[in-house]
Design a protein around this nucleic acid. Sequence first.
DNA 1: CGACAATACGGAGAACCTCTCCGTTTTTCC
DNA 2: GGAAAAACGGAGAGGTTCTCCGTATTGTCG
Lengths: 213, 213
Amino acid sequence: MAAPHTASHTAPHGAPPSAAQPPRRADARQNRERVLAAAREVFTESGPEASLNEIARRAGVGPGTLYRHFPNRHALVAAVVKDRVTALCGHADGLLAADRPADEALADWLRAFLEHARTQHGMGVAAMIADADAAGGGAEAGGELDLNCHLSIHNSAEALLGRAREAGSVRRDLSADDLIQLVVGIALSTARSPDPDQPERLLALVLDAARPR
Amino acid sequence: MAAPHTASHTAPHGAPPSAAQPPRRADARQNRERVLAAAREVFTESGPEASLNEIARRAGVGPGTLYRHFPNRHALVAAVVKDRVTALCGHADGLLAADRPADEALADWLRAFLEHARTQHGMGVAAMIADADAAGGGAEAGGELDLNCHLSIHNSAEALLGRAREAGSVRRDLSADDLIQLVVGIALSTARSPDPDQPERLLALVLDAARPR
DNA sequence: CGACAATACGGAGAACCTCTCCGTTTTTCC
DNA sequence: GGAAAAACGGAGAGGTTCTCCGTATTGTCG
């Protein structure tokens, strides 16, 4: 066991702290929460491409502090949507445990997933896209990245789809990844649509496509 | 009729020249072509978010010259994809004139549309998104915008879909705009997919969804 | 052919972004 | 209380978008 007060807990001098390994100092924990709160506000107003400098200003910290806690935009976006992704996957677990037709459970969850993807100008989608980039890319600077967002959602979709497949409610050749990509695509393409019913309508089409013929 | 040599043809002092109203001076026409050629290269390398300064450098002109010919990023992107959009709509016209089943013609065109949307890191999609923003937005600085991209594609899709509807090959409640959005969504969500077959697979699902039940 | 009006150029500058570095400050623990 | 460790923050580097206006070039007419 490492001696206390020897390992650095800061970036760039060391790996940034994470939810699993919170900073030791109280002022550091407070600053991290302030950055997250400011990020939620600014991302709600301006979407996932909002200025990180503006978030630092809103949080009342320096840019160096923001970057020590979140080494890049994706890390911050992932931290912001983490709770909502956890809730979304919890929702999937609840649906799996409930006594409902498999196709209804899947449809229910995909509706919630679409809602999540579209919230805060597509924050959920932005987090997943960044995760997929990290997963697909080569060696990552800064060590292991947080892939929770992408993998958790994939696992939820896989579980619900598997049940529906076993029940014969969906076509056998449809993969969880393909289904997720279709829903993500709906979120992306309808982000600026003036028709508020269009996302639901397109999702209904996708659900139709998922049924066996 | 306005007297010659009195109306200004430059921005910001006047409206920028367009394809319909090319600049009078030979050096201006040459610079416009150089900017477009550089834009094609740079957008191919880096996608529609590439640096406009880099395009100006590559073209060997000043940023002021680039902005006089193309007042914003969208105008440049639209000019770059204009020829491909024209070809895509010409393709639709050819399919409409040919003696082929309506559903095959529609599928053929949607495949070409998906290919167009994905080319140059989603340039086609970027142009359409910007067009839709312009159409949906309020008063536009800089006068009338070029909506050719969005409207032309919409008209082509409408014509092909109409024929398929009349032939009973597609569900009656599917609109051209919904269909376009689904395909645009596929292009957006699979932009970074490591699976080269995924876009085609998702399009096949969408075509399935389009069929009447 | 030269002059002049019209057209076009370009790059400095304003204002902002991302991201890093390192001197300084604060916190925690012995 | 002091020292080690942890954290802060903002100047600065390098980049972006976009505008403005003094200067240069082009085209037309006498």
